[in-house]
């Protein structure tokens, strides 16, 4: 019974953890929009803008990735189940 509760709670927790995906989504969208603006204003610097944007996006993605890792820990390597 307790095991079932923990598993259910872990699944819910993993789902909630993935809400963290909203942040990077907004952030990367904003960055991509700014990148498109910058390319529109200065098309000759497309390569630099692109690499800078990708780097920034990848770093901004971190928080979402942390959420993902937490979700994966809860789903695949649940530490709570051993506490019983």
């Amino acid at each position: 019974m307790e095991r079932a509760i923990i598993l259910a709670a872990s699944a819910i927790g993993a789902g909630l953890a993935m809400i963290a995906g909203i942040g990077p989504g907004i952030g990367q969208g904003y960055a991509a929009g700014k990148g498109a603006e910058a390319v529109g204003r200065q098309p000759e610097a497309k390569g630099d803008i692109m690499s800078t944007m990708l780097l920034g996006c990848a770093v901004a993605e971190s928080t979402g990735i942390y959420g993902l890792v937490v979700a994966m820990i809860l789903l695949f390597a649940n530490p709570l189940i051993n506490l019983l």
Binding site: M72, I73, F76, A77, P79
Partner: peptide, 11 residues
Amino acid sequence: MDKALQFVSIP
């Protein structure tokens, strides 16, 4: 099933 490490190996 073969023995394997955890997917997210913490610790």
